[in-house]
């Protein structure tokens, strides 16, 4: 870790220089600073900002402050009751200690667990654009099968963001040009030729809130995370499903995947297969196939394609049962 300057922000109107970083829970930033992957000359601690509340919105949704801790969000009564998928996703991630520190805004900006990104002795296009991607022909069991490019195949590690993707969350950000709202669906970028740019935030923008839209009555949701061991491991494949069933038919469904994409992966293809159709295994399988149609396996991660399909099918079965 390199020496850095530490200041505390008192208002949300803080402009950042390129060499500065916001510090919230620190569970990603400090970790990466210890590895010298992040070497800010100064960090701006935003923990004093009044962004730590969960409040109802006028239209019946929920407004989640960027500094709401993962533990608090997961255990919030409204989240547990109405946004089950989000509570489950949060509780499937990390460890209690990490969840007690990690924040909502920080989790959205969590960096990849790619081995090569996290070691400065390797080339990495995400860290140093143009330097190369050792994951392409390296040990890539944990890497992405969706959304990758020849520049980068790193997975986005967040569980929370996957659930929020299925909940059609909206990110609120504030920067020098004022406030704006970004649908989470449009928030993340696939690596393409600029894997260093992971989302549409401007350098001076700070996430202030995330809003979750109201869910129609009778909506059910579930998050299923598949991995080698039972706890404290990033997803090999995960599925978040939010569904509204009328009679035996699926009226509306939102499906997002984790562990398989270079970003939290919303699958409109899978949703399109299901909407208006009976909630039936055959349709679930068709949806799963549609979700993974464009998947590109690397040497060690081909099984993720089938695993993600299984996650989709099982989650749909559970949530429509």
């Amino acid at each position: 870790m390199q020496a850095f300057r530490y200041t505390q922000a008192k208002t949300v109107d803080v402009a950042l220089d390129p060499g500065q970083r916001f510090l919230a829970g620190g569970t990603t930033l400090v970790d990466l600073m210890k590895l010298n992957v992040e070497t800010p000359h100064s960090v701006v601690d935003i923990n004093l900002l009044p962004l730590d509340r969960v409040e109802p919105t006028p239209d019946g949704g929920l407004k989640v402050g960027a500094l709401v801790r993962n533990s608090d969000l997961a255990n919030h009564a409204d989240v547990k009751a109405r946004y089950t998928v989000l509570s489950e996703a949060l509780l499937s991630g990390a460890s209690p200690q990490l969840r007690n520190m990690a924040t909502t805004g920080g989790n959205l900006l969590q960096r990849t667990r790619c081995y090569y990104y996290r070691d400065i002795n390797y080339a990495c296009n995400k860290r140093e654009p143009g330097s190369g991607c050792p994951a392409q022909d390296g040990f890539n069991r944990i890497h992405a099968v969706l959304g990758g490019s020849d520049q980068c195949v790193a997975t986005h590690p967040s569980d929370m963001a996957v659930a929020m993707m299925a909940l059609e969350a909206v990110v609120h950000a504030k920067g020098a040009k004022g406030e704006r709202q970004i649908a989470l669906e449009n928030f993340y970028l696939t690596p393409g030729t600029t894997p260093d740019k992971e989302n549409v935030l401007e350098p001076d923008e700070l996430i202030t809130y995330v809003t979750l839209p109201r869910l129609a009555a009778g909506t059910r949701s579930h998050y299923l995370k598949l991995r080698d061991r039972a706890q404290y491991e990033f997803a090999l494949a995960s599925a978040a499903v939010v569904v509204q069933v009328e009679g035996s038919r699926i009226r509306r469904v939102r499906i997002a995947l984790g562990g398989v994409g270079t970003k939290p992966w919303r699958s409109k293809e899978a949703e399109a297969v299901l909407e208006g159709k009976p909630a039936h295994t055959k349709n679930f399988e068709a949806a799963a196939a549609a979700a993974m149609r464009g998947a590109k396996p690397l040497k060690y991660n081909g099984f993720k394609i089938e695993l993600a399909k299984q996650a989709i099918v099982r989650t749909l079965s559970m949530v429509t049962a």
């Binding site: 667990r113 081995y115 390296g138 040990f139 080698d228 061991r229 039972a230 706890q231 404290y232 491991e233 990033f234």
Partner: peptide, 16 residues
């Protein structure tokens, strides 16, 4: 050794 940390070198957790 690529997985030289306790997140990537997995051992049984209580839940296992």
């Amino acid at each position: 050794p690529l997985n030289n940390n306790f997140a990537d070198y997995i051992v049984a957790t209580n839940a296992d």
